[in-house]
Amino acid sequence: MKVSAIIEKLNLTVFGGHQGLDREVEGGYTSDLLSDVMGHADEGQIWITLQTHRNIMAVASLKDLAAIVVVKGFVPDEGTIQQSNDEGLPLLGSNSEAFELSGQLYELLKK
């Protein structure tokens, strides 16, 4: 499933990285610890987190993640959005909490 389809189904906001909306999503990873994501997330996953600072883009880019979703209506920092645009790596947002959003994404991807 493409990032764009997930945005539509889960009603996500796009903060940046529009060029990457065609990326294929292979799964998801939910964590607020950057080293945990560095160590355990896999290429092509959507990362669900409440972190908003620009280091999340560095981690997502280094790990070749498909996109980041910032939860609970948080708005990413300006530098984060800028880096998302620079790298074409979608930076998304949701008003849901991480638990709910992870459940919804899991349901979508397991089909």
């Binding site: 610890l33 080293s35 560095m38 987190t49 600072h53 999340i56």
Partner: peptide, 15 residues
């Protein structure tokens, strides 16, 4: 910021 979880050096050792 989500750093400082005590996973850095162990991640380095594993990788």
């Amino acid at each position: 910021m989500g750093f400082g979880a005590g996973m850095g050096l162990p991640n380095m050792k594993r990788n």
